[in-house]
Every structure is written in C-alpha cells, then in structure tokens.
Design a protein around this nucleic acid. Structure first.
Ligand code: FES
Ligand code: FES
Lengths: 142, 142
DNA sequence: ATTAACTGATACTAACTTAGTATCAGAATT
DNA sequence: AATTCTGATACTAAGTTAGTATCAGTTAAT
C-alpha cells in the first residue's frame, strides 16, 4: 500500500530544496538537476504548486520559483491533498445492507477517526520541520 | 487519496458477514447476494483469504467457507496487508542527494512513525470490534 | 533587435493497476 | 448422475501513474 505517489514525493523534495535557498529565484532546471527529478515532470508539478500558491514564480531569463509561504506553514498533508486528493479510507465501507444510518454509523466513525489522525500527523510534518531535521542530521555528521 | 481498495473493502465485509454466522458453512454465492459483491470477484478474494488461513473452506455441495480465526484476532491491518501489501509511505523520500545515511535518517523516521501508527490503529480495528459496534448500532435503532 | 533562459498551458504516451469476468477441473452431497 | 460447491488461473476494459513533448509568451542580457 503506497501512500505517497511520485508527484507528492517530488513536490516535497522540491519544496525542501527551495526552503534551503530562501533568497532569489531558482529555475526548475536547477532543482531537477540537484534532486534528480525528471525535468518536464517537475515542471508540471511546480506549475501546480504555483497555481495553489505554495510557490511564487517569475517568468523569463533569470526567473524561476521560490517558496510562497513560510516553510513551517507548509504541511505535507497539504501537498498530499493537492496531488492525491483528501485522505479517504473508503467511500462507504458497509453499504445499506449492513448499515442504514450513515450519519450515526459507528463503523464509519471508527474509520474516519484514523483518517483524521493521519491527516493531523501529516499536517504536523511541515517543510520547515523537515529542513530543521535535515540540518540537525548534517550537523551530527560533521 | 484512497486508502482501501475494493478487494480489501469486500474482504472486510465478507469477514464481518461470516463473523455474524459462526455456525456452519456459508457459500460464496450467499455472501455475494447478501453483500452485493460481484460473485466471481468475491470468489477470488475468498480464495486468497483461505490461502492465508483467515477463513476455512469445505468443497462440494453443502460446503462453503467460515472464519478460520477468532474475529477479535483479525485486524483490518492484516487484511490490508494481504490485498494491498504493507503500508509504506515512500520507498525512500529523499535519496542520496539530501540524505546519505539511511539508517539514521531523521526524515525517514518521521515518516515511518506515521506509517507505524496507521498500522497499529488498523490492527486495533478487528472484525470482532466491528461486529460488536454493528450490534450496538442495531440495538440502539430497535 | 536578437538570442537565450525562463515559465504557462496543455496534449500525448507506455506501463501498470484495478475491478470485474470467465472457464475448467475436482470434491462432496443428494 | 446431477447438482452445488471450492481450487486454480487466464483474461479484459477502464483508469491511474509516471514521464515526455510542444508551443506560446515573458524577461534579461548582449
Ligand atoms: S453507512 Fe457506511 S459504514 Fe455505515
Ligand atoms: S535516506 Fe531516504 S529519507 Fe533519508
């Protein structure tokens, strides 16, 4: 059961990469090279992130992209939602045969509790936090 | 982001259905009719559950399937693993460029923590628990 | 003014996955 | 012998995923 697809994966990595270079515009080409992400694929991903306001862009030579929000305010949950839609366990697991009152359905609540928990946890993992962790690891190594 | 696919969904529902009829063998046809699950699809799912030991089977007329384990010992996590493989967030999210020491990788740990939590929660949701909840709802309605 | 380095938008493709169907063989009951 | 069941396995259509390609427009440098 794969949770994150390539779009989300690459998006998070691109955002981290941008978070590490807060000043100036960074080209898609540069990120692609640095992270080993297929160029055209990354371009499409960045375009979506731009549409969603997570990153800003500047056209033309010397242009590129940069973060549009504070890294600590970008949760992985948000990125997942953009590229994979809201976390949903199952549209409705037990149908009318077993369960007629959807509204008060205990089973449904059980499942949705997990759903919410996952979302909450992925929200707490922000780009800012990942960068901090990353720097901590670097410091330890050195 | 869909967490459960149809195989898992149908499998859980079939297991609940079997848990509600502990005595005797139940045919795939009967479950299919009761739950509105496509017959041939359900057959294939049951065959897998049998191979995995979650249900027992008896061939021939008057045969069918029945639970092979105590319902409270069948967690949804186990069913997910059978039909969708182990929950895994991402093979490796940040590659060598960002993160050379996989073993001690903080980022990886962060993600795997969530992974483990999801698994744990889905383990706690057993077929037995779902049946109990279901009966509680029924009682309230009546 | 031209060229080069960029993004914006969008169309396309191959490979894989999912959901569902079909078939034939064999076992137990009647 | 007929019927009702599982065991094994092959097949298909539709959808998704990952990746590619193209053309148009913008900015900067020369
Ligand atoms: S109504 Fe869907 S699980 Fe109860
Ligand atoms: S080594 Fe894969 S995330 Fe660090």
């Amino acid at each position: 059961m794969k949770v994150l697809n390539k779009e989300t994966d690459y998006a998070v990595r691109a955002l981290i990469s941008l978070g590490l270079k807060p000043e100036g515009w960074v080209s898609a080409k540069a990120i692609s090279d640095e992270q080993g992400i297929p160029y055209q694929f990354l371009r499409r991903i960045l375009q979506e992130l731009i549409r969603q306001g997570l990153v800003l862009s500047k056209e033309g030579a010397g242009g590129g992209v940069r973060l549009g929000k504070n890294p600590v305010e970008i949760g992985v949950a948000e990125v997942i939602e953009i590229f994979q839609g809201k976390v949903q366990v199952s549209e409705c697991m037990f149908r009318k045969q077993l369960c007629s009152n959807r509204a008060n359905c205990v089973l449904r609540h059980e499942i949705m509790r997990i759903e919410q928990m996952v979302n909450q946890e992925f929200s707490k993992v922000t780009i800012g936090k990942l960068i901090a962790d990353l720097k901590a690891v670097e410091a330890m190594k050195g």
